[in-house]
Design a protein around this nucleic acid. Structure first.
Length: 596
RNA sequence: CGGGAUGUGGCGCAGUUUGGUAGCGCACUUCGUUCGGGACGAAGGGGCCGCAGGUUCGAAUCCUGUCAUCCCGACCA
């Protein structure tokens, strides 16, 4: 392709809207154009990158035995109602774009495709003999993100590869899950992306085992907790660790103490020489349930621990079968709006009476009481007395009327010891989520009544897995990891072009002629080559070539008359003066070997 | 949605406090001189100053409303 013909417009100034380097470079080098918030046009150069990524993804996913499909983006509400996701995906700040057609039928614009694919599987797969089946597609997905940002990193329309697998038993699902794990690692490494697999929360999609692939980058939105030897890594939402040992409370009798103006852990500790680990703090949240119910939660935590809200949502779902669509701390205004008397905030105890909720307008009038393991393990502790300005020391769970539901709802912190290996400590790094694999189990097949006939003639729900890769996000993540002050440095495997020939002076006939010859020869060799034939000064062409990030550059310049060119490698910035034929030889052996 | 900020040619910005009818750099066009790391000079083209009302003889500038964009939080490939 000739640069003079490719609608290339590069920007010298950094667009004001772009915050992170990869986004700035995509805009400056003319790869993408913003159309509206979170919605981008992929310009010709970008499309080539995406197509390269797609073909790597296709190769590796096809190799797992998966079949490519293309599913509709417009999806009927009924399917989403069956899985119970229509409300949570559309109501309030729902993430699904949705609309009504002219007959008034409700449709959603696909943020994901479990409903569709499971329905298709249900209608197509009737016997265990047809299993397992893996289906996938690569196409645009739509999510009405609360806050789109960072260009393609979090956009509202984005390209995703999503695969879904169907199995007759859990073991088989596990096998495919492992295959995908391996395929994903190959894909990311072929794309030149450094990733860390982490244990993940399975979020709104639901399910059992789940792993995220994080591209490590300072600009990443996710915090990853990782052990020193990298054996363990988890999303902060899911991370577990060994909490520090509590400082035992010296023996003593249960007694109420005066604690005026000591409504925080800090104040309480500094005034009474307590250690935060000797205290139980109590927090009240409201869990908004899928069916609209508002359940007050009375949560007990050890004073030195922090609450992990995601773990609470999961606990409610997994242990109590409550599907929570929103979780938020209560406020004084809300208590008033409920028509209730004020709570003794700052002095709450785990035994706060349900009578505080009597007469609530929309809240349920019984607390759901849960506590973190670190709290329930304390034999003796200090806690609020449910009376302003008073705490209780040497309290025990017995005296409080028993131990509430004991679960892990604390945040793992940097410096904690790891559960898998107590010689390791946790530290944190930032990452960009580029892939996610789940073992869904039978959640969707059950709710959509997707069954097949098993060996003994009975009906059974499919075991399912789902596996996503954010294609457009991945492309940008690669830039985040591969750039310098001059621009992008594409790995050759996904570069839009492999070589750019810069003719230093287009008025020089010798240079132009040699450039054109070289261009044609390289094309014949099957190399993807750009010819910068623009009537620009050499400096402009060099700057643009660096900015675009093409892995190799050939400069046809002063030495053209001696049949020599300069070969420049973008990543190392090494330049070699070479005879033309030697350069061709070198490139035609080197480039194909590094494409993989 | 809550908190913060900004909207002025394609991009980056000044002008707004103290109303007088729009300017700078980059990019674009033409000519000349240059010609290996974003050249220089000269001459040009392009903007109803986000939009709608209002105040005023007169509004980019003041007032009201509205829309959009970006940043911080919840969301997620």
């Amino acid at each position: 392709m000739r640069v003079s013909r490719m609608m290339l417009v590069t920007l010298r100034d950094v667009p004001a809207d772009a915050e992170i380097v990869s986004h700035q470079l995509l805009l400056r080098a003319g790869y993408i154009k913003r159309v509206t918030s979170g919605i981008y046009a992929y310009l010709p150069l970008m499309l080539r990158v995406l197509q390269k990524i797609n073909s790597i993804v296709r190769e590796e996913i096809n190799a797992t035995g998966a079949l490519e499909t293309l599913l509709p983006q417009l999806q009927p509400a009924e399917l989403w109602e069956k899985t119970g996701r229509w409300n949570s995906y559309t109501a309030g700040e729902g993430i699904m774009f949705h609309l009504k057609d002219r007959q008034g039928r409700k449709l959603g614009i696909g943020p994901t495709h479990e409903e569709i694919i499971t329905t298709i599987a249900k209608e197509t797969i009737h016997s265990y003999k047809q299993l397992p089946v893996i289906l996938y597609q690569i196409q645009s997905k739509f999510r009405d993100e609360i806050r789109p940002r960072f260009g393609l990193m979090r956009s509202r329309e984005f390209i995703m590869k999503d695969a879904y697998s169907f199995h007759s038993n859990e073991d088989d699902l596990g096998k495919t899950y492992t295959c995908m794990d391996i395929a994903y690692k190959k894909i990311f490494s072929r794309c030149g992306l450094k990733t860390v697999p982490v244990d993940a929360d399975s979020g709104a999609i639901g399910g059992a085992a789940s792993q995220e692939f994080m591209a490590t980058a300072e600009a990443g939105e996710d915090l990853i907790m990782i052990s020193s030897n990298r054996d363990y890594a988890a999303n902060q939402e899911k991370a577990i660790s060994i909490p520090k040992r509590p400082k035992p409370l010296p023996t003593g009798n249960t007694s109420i103490i005066n604690t005026p103006n000591q409504s925080t852990i800090d104040e309480l500790c500094s005034s009474n020489k307590f250690d935060p680990s000797q205290i139980i703090k109590v927090i009240i949240f409201i869990a908004k349930e899928e069916n609209g119910g508002l359940q007050p939660l009375l949560i007990s935590l050890r004073g030195d621990q922090k609450l992990n809200e995601v773990k609470i949502v999961n606990t409610l779902h997994n242990k109590l079968g409550i599907n929570v669509i929103d979780l938020y701390p209560i406020t004084i205004d809300e208590i008033r709006n409920q028509g209730l008397c004020e709570f003794p905030f700052g002095y709450l105890g785990p035994d706060l009476d349900d009578k505080y909720l009597l007469g609530a307008k929309t809240w349920k009038n019984k607390f759901l009481r849960i506590a973190d393991h670190t709290a329930t393990k304390l034999k003796l502790f200090i806690c609020g007395s449910n009376k302003e300005n008073h705490h209780v020391t040497h309290m025990s769970w017995d005296k409080l009327g028993g131990i509430p539901l004991s679960v892990d709802i604390r945040k793992a912190e940097v410096g904690d010891l790891c559960v898998h290996d107590q010689t390791q400590t946790l530290s944190s790094i930032r990452g960009i989520e580029v892939g996610h694999i789940f073992q869904l189990g039978r959640k969707y097949s059950d709710s959509l009544d997707a069954k097949y006939t098993n060996e003994s003639g009975g009906q059974e729900s499919f075991w399912m897995g789902c596996y996503g890769i954010g294609i457009s996000r991945l492309a940008q993540a690669v830039i985040e990891q591969n750039h310098d002050e001059n621009g992008i440095i594409w790995p050759i495997s996904i570069a839009p072009y492999e070589i750019i020939i810069s003719i230093a002076n287009t008025k020089d006939k010798t240079q132009t002629k040699l450039g054109e010859e070289l261009y044609n020869k390289l094309i014949k060799l099957g190399i993807e080559v750009l010819l910068d034939d623009r009537k620009e000064r050499a400096g402009v062409k060099f700057k643009d070539a660096d900015l675009l990030g093409i892995p190799w550059r050939i400069v046809v310049g002063r030495e053209a008359e001696f049949n020599k060119i300069e070969l420049f490698e973008r990543s190392s910035r090494n330049t070699t003066l070479m005879i033309v034929d030697d350069a061709i030889k070198k490139l035609s052996s080197e480039i194909p070997s590094k494409r993989s």
